[in-house]
Design a protein around this nucleic acid. Sequence first.
RNA 1: GGUGGGAUGGCCGAGUGGUCAAAGGCAGCAGACUGUAAAUCUGCCGACACCGUCUACGAAGGUUCGAAUCCUUCUCCCACCA
Length: 382
Amino acid sequence: MSAKLPLEFVVDAVCPVTGARAGRIITQHGEIPTPVFMPVGTQATVKAMAPFELEEIGAKIILSNTYHLHLRPGGELVRAAGGLHNFMRWDHPILTDSGGFQVFSLASLGRISDEGVVCKSHLDGSTHVMSPEWSMETQLHLGSDIAMCFDQCAPYPCSREEAEEAVRRTTLWAGRSLDAHSRGIEEAPHQALFGIVQGSVHEDLRLRSAAELIPLDFPGYAVGGLSVGEPAEEMYRILDVLNPVLPATKPRYLMGVGRPDNLVEGVARGVDMFDCVLPTRNGRNGTLLTPEGAMNIKKKQYERDFSPVDTECDCYACRTFTRAYLRHLYRAGEILAMRLCSWHNLRYLVRLGERMRAAILEGTFPEFRREFHARFRAPEAS
RNA sequence: GGUGGGAUGGCCGAGUGGUCAAAGGCAGCAGACUGUAAAUCUGCCGACACCGUCUACGAAGGUUCGAAUCCUUCUCCCACCA
């Protein structure tokens, strides 16, 4: 099935109890069944994983990052390489983040105004100007299937004024993003642009943000500015508020969320797409996702544990190796430890998406959700 | 046989009279990580009755109010000379 528009979204089933959706996002690089977890490949690579391994894992779409690729190797170079798909040899859908998150995560290096962000490169200190127009031009050069609006992500906690300012600016920038994207679209006619709702943990600001963006008729809507340190309950409350107002016919993307329990609760609140660095970062740091919660493979208790990480997991690491071996590899500083732990964590989350989709299609999502939480030990709230 | 250098907490290695239970690194143990400045960061790391006491800087003895630090002897290691 090929998309006539840059992107189409088909809803296959909706859970009558929760509103959880099973759907398909159809792009020119392939179809993405939802709910979906998207591995993050900031620098045109999912750290420690080769593209064929991501295919083996079942990843249907990956992320990359406009800011990081702009600094190195540069959007123009990627365009000269035949676009990001060809450059990194991933012939499936790609979503690029706009650089908006770096305005937040690298705030100490930059100065923000309505015009955009002037910031110092974290690589060499050189000065760069980021704006909606810059972000759109760069993302069109990259040629991703889904581009994101340049937005402002407020920190948590922040004052109401600060959150309100971020909403106002995000709306302003969404309009400029859309204009710039429309002007340049012939460079990447397959590219869809998603809007991003901000508003921190304030329900009225979230509703305002959504109300201001919906008329722009983006083909998909993201919820940004969550999972930045707020308690999970706050995140769920905001999703509850947005669920009824975001267009039901368009995919919804909860940005930056990757804790398994957050994924399940997000889906229960109508979210279709997630991305997170957690499986790869935690994988490199020796923390593994299991149905019981996080497990740290470095711990002494696994020294002589010759069972797999997760007996229910079908990933290469769990099919093949023992906890004792992974612990040994990690302690020995071997690259394979990071690869296998990332491999497992990615498969765990991709499979979690697959399982939720199957449950929604079968009409058993409420049971799935209940059974998931009965086993999963969430980390203590900080 | 002679001369010189050295022996410090599991390992490496600072420290040359008090502010030393002894820097730093490694190893070890535990914790964190949510649109990636992260193969990173944080804490603990002599014993215990743990805001205190005890045992500790090769061994034994000595000087001193006070020694890992100064003196004597011994043991072992390294370098060079014979």
